[in-house]
Write a protein that binds this DNA or RNA. Structure first.
Lengths: 206, 206, 206, 206
DNA sequence: AATGAATGAGCCTTCATTCAT
DNA sequence: GATGAATGAAGGCTCATTCAT
């Protein structure tokens, strides 16, 4: 929708689309996904109501676009660690630490992903979300498959794998993120980085 | 707020309070927690706007009351299986299967619990929620403690225990519940009941 | 919805419902039915947005309620002249003059009826409108029937009767009303009162 | 505004102007004149927003242009039957049947004419509309004049003539058109073609 | 002639909440 | 305990229109 080739040498380098998404994320960070309102977004970036609708079609469209952008970025981040890993054990651990490191590095985005999944899943782009999630799981399983066949991994139902590997780390990260600037809250996931990685390996090794 | 010792001289045995909560749950089941509105509730049960406010004080009050009711019921359900378990391993597995069985038996309530946690945690009863969650975790840890000291359990940080034990089953149940009456969806958690229980044990045994 | 028994001895005797309808008519008179907006109505009577919705459910609801009120009043007005008429010829003429007199006496309402019919007919109360229109036609035909059988009226298809009797007077009144405070406009229908009445009789007499 | 002598070196033979008007008519046919929006038109034909403004200047301009086009076409159609008629009676009847035949042949356009008259009459081209209407009436009266002077026609006020002659057929056609693809609706005007023509003659003959 | 991004006023509607009865 | 009329802030969305390219 919006294309711009090297637009201004001075100030506004980012295009409207991205400005709007940034503003939406800022709204969500402050008061939750439900607080992402057209007017709130409009107030943060300079965009007009009409411009937001021109680019995203609806409030839902803004949230969904942001969700998919962040989702993809997170996937890339995890994939990078996975690609760098050598061996089964390191691979399994990379999935955990790749996820954990990204959450710690981008807590705002991570919180948004948790919060926005429901709304997106129930919205008009639910099929797209299902497809993206399926794709990610397939990639994970495809990576596992040779090792499982080679006997390095326990023979578990493939529907269970994601939950067994990622369940604990997601559970902990979710709890950590859900605390509002906690004083007496949970320690950073970084503290348990190796424990969580090790637990994932124990869960699936032969 | 509402107590009734003389249940009604005439017909209706159920009290208003419960009718309202039932209606609220029905609203949430249909379109998510955010769709629980005073007017939506009013339309489902016969209660008037004023009556709802009389009993619960606010919309948030309705959601929170429902949340705590369900939360307590779920805790009771899990506790019952835990109480019946003999030995460490059986105990750990009871936590998983107790949770899993309740989710399968009460999927509507389970979905509500997932959805409403955020709103309740950010509302005026957040302290109460934190306390309830802490209490449940403490109970779990207290149950574990003697076995850990006895060497039957791995020496893990206690902040991690809940995620290691319950993370996978919660992850799977959440995924299962989030599918809207799926045709090609995930199998019932029951299918993986013993796998999930066994995995929990592997995660924490010495 | 709104009941009020002898509320105030001094000023506001009319209830909210009627105040809202009056305001809506005033809006329509000034700038057409399409200009009946919730906010315009709210500004004219003191009612709040919520109050309007409480009574009428939607903007469409306000317009429809006003339409049906005026429609009924017009029917009553015509019926009164018809009841007073003696003989076939006088009856046919009473239909025309009854209508014409009402239009001249209530031009604002008459204009509204012309303008709002389309929207109401395409809205959710279209069935009700069809029924009301059918009822009025049936009443007219039922009144004609004995005279037609008695040979005083030409044997015409009953679907055509309303158009033959009322078509000309409606056509003229519509043209007259559609002129905005005309200087060089059409003369008042009153000028052609007897001509139009006579024409109606010529159109259907045996 | 748009003239084209060199219709296009490549493919598309129809010009933009007409495509836009066709799209506008389609919008109106589906949901009424008020539903003719720039964006709706844009979505139907391929034209861009700017292109529509280039050709018609405003939304009102599109509606008005379409109205005058159709109005002129209808006039031509009626005039053709009138020209072919021989004698007073045939002439009067030709006015009715010419109108009726056109409505039946072009119901979509006819409905648009009924719906759009108000908006156009209140818009910036109202004078033009008044002139067109006056012109048509003058033509009709001019055609009548010699016959009236010759005593073949009743001596009626000329303001009344259009309503007396065309009122019934317009009334019936309007009612017929306003039914949405009716199942139990009114019969086609064709069914009463000769009745309506005869009635018009009875209304004005000496 | 054409394009489409941007604008912002204006609209309808929902909703939590209050309060007199 | 219960009722429902009234309130008004807030939100989503449509739409005609402008303008730089």
């Amino acid at each position: 929708m919006a294309s711009r080739t090297n637009p201004a040498p001075t100030a506004e380098p980012t295009d409207r689309r991205q400005e709007i998404l940034n503003a939406a994320l800022a709204c969500a960070a402050q008061a939750g996904v439900d607080a992402v309102s057209i007017d709130g977004v409009r107030a943060r970036c300079g965009a007009s109501v009409g411009s937001i609708y021109h680019h995203f079609g609806s409030r839902e469209g803004v949230v969904a676009a942001l969700f998919f952008d962040i989702f993809a970025e997170q996937s890339r981040s995890v994939q990078a660690q996975l690609d760098a890993a050598v061996g089964v054990e390191a691979g399994v651990q990379a999935l955990v630490t790749g996820y954990l490191d990204w959450v710690v590095a981008q807590p705002v985005q991570a919180r948004f992903l948790f919060q926005a999944r429901g709304p997106v899943a129930n919205g008009p782009r639910s099929a797209e979300l299902a497809e993206a999630a399926r794709g990610r799981n397939q990639a994970l399983l495809a990576w596992f498959e040779p090792h499982r066949r080679g006997g390095a991994l326990r023979d578990l139902p493939c529907e269970l794998m994601p939950s067994l590997v990622m369940g604990p780390v997601q559970s902990y990260c979710r709890a950590w993120l859900s605390e509002r600037a906690g004083q007496g809250g949970l320690p950073s996931p970084q503290v348990y980085r190796s424990e969580l990685a090790a637990a994932a390996w124990r869960a699936v090794r032969a």
